[in-house]
Design a protein around this nucleic acid. Structure first.
Length: 111
DNA sequence: TCAATGACGTATC
DNA sequence: CGATACGCCATTG
């Protein structure tokens, strides 16, 4: 059986350049409703360079990492480098919200 | 056990 | 738009 962590990372890997998704959105797509906090926990603990963790923000488009942590500035910079519109610490969701096609999900996932 | 915690979400004011 | 309140849930101590 595939672990929840694995399913979450599988979804995050699908997010394309300059697009973002929310913790809750990822949880839902991974088949784990009400588990947004689990997503944050998983991302916090992964070191895999292939995982675009910086493309995950709150449902309001704000960077959730505390400003006191260095990774907050890092996420912000990584997004800017991809051409994402950010004002303050909020992403322009209307423009960058990720909308995966059903085909994308069926191809990459097995459920 | 149980209370506290957190890279959350939604509703209200 | 910012602040607060409360719901939700796995993890921690």
């Amino acid at each position: 059986m595939e672990s929840n962590e694995q399913r979450i990372l599988s979804v995050v890997r699908l997010i394309p350049m300059s697009m973002v998704a929310s913790y809750g959105q990822v949880a839902d797509l991974a088949g784990l409703p009400k588990r947004a906090r689990l997503v944050s926990k998983v991302l916090k603990g992964t070191n895999d360079k292939e995982i675009p963790w910086h493309r995950i923000v709150s449902s309001q488009g704000k960077i959730s990492i505390p400003k006191s942590l260095p990774s907050h500035a890092l996420q912000r910079q990584l997004l800017l480098d991809e051409g994402v519109d950010i004002k303050g610490n909020s992403v322009n969701m209307a423009k960058h919200r990720w909308q995966p096609s059903i085909d994308t999900l069926l191809f990459q996932l097995s459920y």
